[in-house]
Design a protein around this nucleic acid. Structure first.
Length: 104
DNA sequence: CGATTGACCGCTA
DNA sequence: TTAGCGGCCAATC
């Protein structure tokens, strides 16, 4: 089932330009629920369009890439393909540099 | 319809 | 400074 909340989250994801990333917290704030970070995760976890929707551009606010529906390594591979560098600790190298902030 | 889980965040020890 | 616990919102079983 596709709810309005999910569509809202996915819509925000598409606003992220290529080579940029965002965090679940920022994404939650963008949809008007800054405390619903876990809900955003659930919404993306149920995302049927892993390629169509750039859900791999979403990372944790502490700098780590977090997890991914299609697998941890797959997320890293996609991010590197977008130009994002990931270190051995599973953290985004250019985190602050490539971070995308929403208007809201 | 009620309970549990999950791609998390922030505070406390 | 690092590790652990509780809380939050939605989706899924």
């Amino acid at each position: 089932m596709v709810t309005d909340f999910q569509k809202l989250v996915w819509a925000k994801l598409e606003e992220i330009p290529q080579g940029r990333i965002t965090s679940y917290k920022e994404l939650a704030r963008a949809v008007g629920k800054s405390r619903a970070v876990r809900a955003v995760g659930s919404a993306c976890a149920s995302n049927p369009n892993l390629i169509e929707v750039p859900c791999h551009r979403v990372v944790r606010s502490d700098g780590k890439v977090g997890s991914y529906r299609g697998g941890y390594k797959t997320k890293i591979a996609l991010l590197e393909k977008e130009g994002i560098s990931i270190d051995q600790n599973g953290c985004v190298a250019n985190f602050s540099n490539c971070f995308h902030h929403f208007d809201s």
